[in-house]
Amino acid sequence: MIGLPDIMAAQARYARCIDDGRLEDWPGFFLPDCVYRITTAENHRLGFAAGLIWADSLGMLQDRVAALREANIYERHAYRHVLGLPLLEEAGADGTRSETPFLVARIMRDGATDLFATGRYLDLWRADGDGPPKLAERIVVCDSSRVDTLLALPL
């Protein structure tokens, strides 16, 4: 049985992992056959399936990290995630769903700090043995339809 404290703890660890720059650990929050997608509220409302990032396997998340580390070129920056309270839905056969609002500030190498994204995580959590629950699905729904410059680090 996955409870609110489990999900809050997992969310807090997830945010700290990205904000600390430990991208290699980020796929570890997901199950092997996970879905991870970044989209916008408008696309979500209209049922458009595309994403800024669209992954349906843990391997694709690991590839994303490898590409960011080894291939892609972007200015050094970091995020600060501030998460709101998760809203838990009834647990179903496929896991426990939650919705969690977030704010993400982006801190560029010269110190410029902007509100980069606001939105919500639409999550599906499943137990993973005795460990903390893991994400079977995370749809990141950004409120705005605009992305400033580029989206490198995951949300």
């Binding site: 800024l52 669209w54 992954a55 590409a67 892609n72 972007y74 580029l150 989206l151 490198a152």
Partner: peptide
């Protein structure tokens, strides 16, 4: 292949 293009695209984010 959305992953290739757009603001987060492997071959276009630059």
């Amino acid at each position: 292949q959305c992953n290739l293009v757009g603001p987060a695209g492997y071959v276009s984010m630059e």
